[in-house]
Design a protein around this nucleic acid. Structure first.
Lengths: 252, 252
DNA sequence: ACTGGTCAACTGGCCTGACCAATTAATCCG
DNA sequence: CGGATTAATTGGTCAGGCCAGTTGACCAGT
């Protein structure tokens, strides 16, 4: 296989260069870039080419172009604002943050309409989880059952599906590899206790309490994760596919 | 209010138009688009403008531009990159309820960390929407941009993706057929007003207000829907709390 | 008949230069 | 001093042109 050489289009080279400067922090967030005409001259390209590069960066969410005003740096990392999605999975911390926001709201809602039958479902999931804490695979099934069970209380299929899909994102090889470092009987038992707190709040019809308990749970999950991996990953810059059990630095 | 002059950037209108044609399947995947010069003439824009629109679509992954060869449609949905073609569509009311719960929480969070640049993005979406209220296609694009724009404020790619995916569920033939009965310039103008309220609350850093405004917006959407729904298909009852059988099943 | 090379038509990539429209700040007037 | 006006700045769009890569038809050599 002779790696098809892709002749880089000029506007892409320009976009790459500016994007790199933003990521490296050489262009501060909020800072205004030079005018298009000036920028084009500095980069030795024509204005249309420079504009095409800027449009790419705007589509990626790095900059914001305002008519008559100027070009401004909006964010430093690709938090993707426009659907130019990259890898199907986002970072672990990002995922947990999203789950915290969404599932907290769901728990709050669930507490308002929980019936005895719904609580029974949660109890079943808890019981199952307590019995398989040693089994890395089985415990995940029980964990998932608990979280989707909460969504099921609201009685909304979309919520159940979204909750399940977010949970399933950890079922990728990359996530499992990372998870194997911090998930263990000890951490699962902690998670189980937090689950019980959530269940109790929902059973009591305590919406605020359920929300808080869920937030505590997912925040702690995040904490357990970061502790096991140390600060090397705290930056959590993209898919560092650092194989190996030893926690090597994310060689990017 | 006075129908806001269409001051939208031209290349975005062009991009929106082509993107919608792709999403709707009017342009088949793999199909080659007309040459840039010809396309520009058909759309009554200059070639540079058309190019800028195409570059946006390429950055979003909808098309693939091969120099010397042509422009090809690569995929129909932005989310198709994951390869998972989802079909299990839930009911309209169910979807709106789920969005209400989830997007309320996101708005609440967004209000806590909104910066001027983020508000500028929302304003851009609002302005775009106000100019195309008459255009059933274009208004959807602006609507989507507003909702994902809020998620983008939090800076979490997962939230952006989930928000976008939920929105895109209305892009199915079934939903569009139903929507055609209740969506119109009048209802869109109401939605626009509600959007403005949400934007103002977020800009003011009012978390509770943002949450409430978003809930009002999606509740009203549901109301608008059900009113027209009732006229067309009178009799149909309480579909909004379906999912009865799901209530017992935790693991899906 | 098949292979390899040449060539012309087509298509995207890039440029120059200009004008329009929105924004912003300096300026003027009440 | 404050609001309205003007002028400079900046992004948005356009026109036309040239260059470079792609493609396929055509032709010479094996």
């Amino acid at each position: 296989m002779f790696s098809a050489v892709e002749s880089r289009r000029l506007y892409r080279q320009v976009a790459d260069q500016i994007r790199l400067m933003i990521i490296r922090g050489e262009l501060a967030v909020g800072q205004r870039l030079p005018a298009e005409r000036e920028l084009a001259e500095q980069l030795s390209v024509s204005r249309p080419t420079l504009r095409e590069a800027l449009i790419v960066l705007e589509a990626e969410g790095y900059i914001n172009i305002r008519m008559g005003s100027g070009i401004y740096v909006t964010r430093r990392h690709a938090a993707e604002a426009t659907g130019s999605e990259r890898e199907p999975v986002e970072g672990p911390f990002e995922l947990l943050q999203a789950r915290a926001i969404i599932e907290c709201a769901i728990s709050e809602e669930a507490a308002k309409s929980a019936r005895p039958e719904d609580i029974a479902v949660l109890d079943e999931a808890l019981r199952a989880m307590s019995g398989v804490v040693e089994d890395a695979r089985a415990v995940l099934v029980a964990d998932r059952a608990f979280h989707t069970g909460i969504a099921a209380i609201v009685g909304n299929a979309t919520l159940i599906r979204v909750t399940g899909e977010m949970f399933d994102m950890r079922m990728t090889p990359y996530f499992e590899k990372l998870a194997s470092h911090f998930e263990g009987p000890v951490s699962w038992r902690s998670a189980l206790e937090e689950h019980r707190a959530i269940r109790d709040a929902i059973a009591a019809g305590d919406a605020a309490g359920a929300k808080a308990a869920m937030r505590t749970h997912l925040t702690n999950s995040q904490k357990r994760f970061s502790e096991s991996f140390g600060e090397e990953f705290s930056g959590e810059e993209g898919r560092c596919h650092t194989a190996g059990p030893n926690k090597g630095k994310a060689a990017t």
